[in-house]
Design a binder for these strands. Structure first.
Lengths: 188, 188
DNA sequence: CTAGTTTATGACCATTTGGTCAATAATTCA
DNA sequence: TGAATTATTGACCAAATGGTCATAAACTAG
């Protein structure tokens, strides 16, 4: 009934996400978002709301794509140990290459935003839960006791997130490797 | 030979640190720092340099005080297991009370700043190493093999940092408890 | 073709940002 | 006391910030 959007929304969200991912919320300016998306300010505001709404959209997009990719691995083929190893190997790979500086947007959002932003906190909380459940289910064929599986899953999530902090902080890749190896030892 | 400082430098750094700790670097404005310190802008710049230098000073102060307090625990009395339990209990305590929103300044700095700020990265890297070594030494009476102790120490640091991400992200305290318990099981 | 509706555009805005500086005040050494 | 040195003060600044809006353009239903 009217003029249609002249851009692919998903493509634009992806570009917004990449900026927030690399720079964080506060360090990202509207100019950065304009430059990255190729749209003009007015269009961005019209389509997504204000900067904060753009961040939330980016976070949800990260959940739907990057986190989901991890969950797909956990739901896919292979032993529990192999699947969990793959999660850590991605971090180690990224650390060794040292190219993209973003790390994990979920972790970044948790530390930068969650404490002062209830909406971000809710989103982060939900995504953490999703990740934990997926790990639990990957473990369930090997661990009959559900509480035990939940506890181990919580633990693996912690170690995984911790490895993202180490990676960004310039810790040697060996520390992340050690973390990975210890985690795998615990997976039956 | 001239007019002396009319303020306690350490006290001022402490107040600057608290602001950065709670809000992060980018979300902290010079106005915030002025308000928190009670000094005027000119005095702050005169004494500490620019905002970035203030952040670095705050980070170093965090190392000298808060991180050192943790290391003191690790160097102090008690079994290795007891000492490491105490690290996690602090996080759990803070999570349950939900009062101070800062979490761990070292983790915050790593995720917000390290990727784009070599000085912060160097500081974070050094502090991570200090923490890891202290954990290693706490373990050493029980683990003869040095490589093994180093690997376990790296692992515990990861799990600890991860629990800080979980805590800020609104994950249930039980997840942090599970993380703690699994860590302790690995400590001989 | 036209009326109606939505999108795109970029000029525009108040506010806030980090940072400077000349003037003044306080101190010490001689 | 006076010369030298440093600290404090607050006014000041250019630039950047997030955000708005009137206008023009593009599309669809009738």
């Amino acid at each position: 009934m009217a003029r249609p959007r002249q851009f692919d929304e998903t493509l634009v969200i992806e570009s917004l996400m990449n900026v927030f991912w690399e720079k964080g919320y506060e360090a990202t300016s509207m100019q950065d978002l304009v430059a990255a998306s190729g749209l003009l300010k007015g269009s961005l505001y019209g389509a997504f709301g204000d900067k904060h709404a753009m961040y939330l959209s980016a976070l949800k997009h990260y959940d739907r794509t990057r986190i989901q990719a991890g969950i797909d691995v956990l739901n896919g083929e292979g032993s529990a140990r192999q699947k969990i190893a793959r999660l850590f190997d991605n971090v180690i790979e990224a650390t060794k290459r040292g190219l993209f500086a973003g790390g994990c947007l979920l972790c970044n959002a948790s530390l930068e935003m969650a404490a002062r932003d209830p909406e971000v906190k809710a989103e982060v909380k939900t995504t953490i839960r999703r990740l934990k459940v997926a790990i639990m289910e990957a473990l369930s064929p090997r661990i009959a006791n559900e509480d035990q599986a939940a506890a181990l899953a919580a633990f693996i999530v912690s170690a995984y997130f911790g490895s993202r902090v180490l990676a960004k902080g310039g810790a040697p890749a060996a520390m992340i490797g050690d973390t990975r190896d210890h985690c795998l030892q615990l997976v039956p």
